[in-house]
Design a protein around this nucleic acid. Structure first.
Lengths: 111, 111
DNA sequence: TCTTGACGCTACAAAATATGTAGCGTATCC
DNA sequence: GGATACGCTACATATTTTGTAGCGTCAAGA
């Protein structure tokens, strides 16, 4: 089942939600932005600082996409997850857990 | 705790595992490749077909990175997850579940 | 043995995407 | 009204990705 207003997603002609999601998350900085928002709202400038060397052009373009898809929203407190976005944000924590395990195993195999 | 041989990750100077992971997954096609491998091994050419219009240059570069990080391996059957990679692959299923919920909610809010 | 097919790639110029710096317009606080 | 923080936009440069072509290896079949 294709999704409305998701037609222009980069890598997908099917319109399948997972393809649209993978396409969006696969753009540079998108996952990082989701990660940085994991436990508090951040302003545009906060995000620039947290992400180090992201350009404002790119940051704005990612934030717009995340807003269009209702994963984040913007109000006076800054940018933060929507209710549904928070569930995706929770996956960031899973990735963090996995990455720690991964790092220790890689160190072992190189010891 | 920085990770050995992860120094050249694009977006991160810290060497923190999560940063390296987000950086890798944030490159175009990496998530898609992980997704396509979710329930069977695929050859290089299978992956090209499944991914539609990925260029062999990019595919090779992503596969190399995933192999270097021991997330996938390559043998006579094709490319497939390592044991640890499979745990990351399982997250792909979570993303799929989330994306379906997301799609139906987006459709509602646009109805 | 010759050919056909699949395999995993590499080369390289062109196109798309991201960067870095500068700075604009608005609002708020003193 | 001067200083500060806000969310951006402009635009030339740099990096990344694409698309097409094709190479070298191997194994099966005629």
């Amino acid at each position: 089942m294709p999704v409305k207003n998701m037609d222009k997603a980069r890598g997908s002609t099917t319109g399948r939600p997972i393809m649209i999601l993978l396409d969006m998350l696969g753009k540079r900085w998108t996952l990082r932005i989701m990660w940085e928002l994991r436990d508090r709202p951040l302003t545009f400038r906060d995000l620039q600082k947290q992400c180090g060397d992201i350009s404002p052009t790119t940051l704005n373009s990612r934030l717009r996409e995340l807003r269009d898809f209702e994963i984040i929203s913007h109000d006076t407190g800054g940018y933060s997850y929507t209710a549904l976005g928070a569930e995706l944000g929770a996956q960031m924590t899973e990735l963090d857990n996995w990455s720690r395990k991964w790092a220790s195993q890689l160190n072992d195999s190189q010891a």
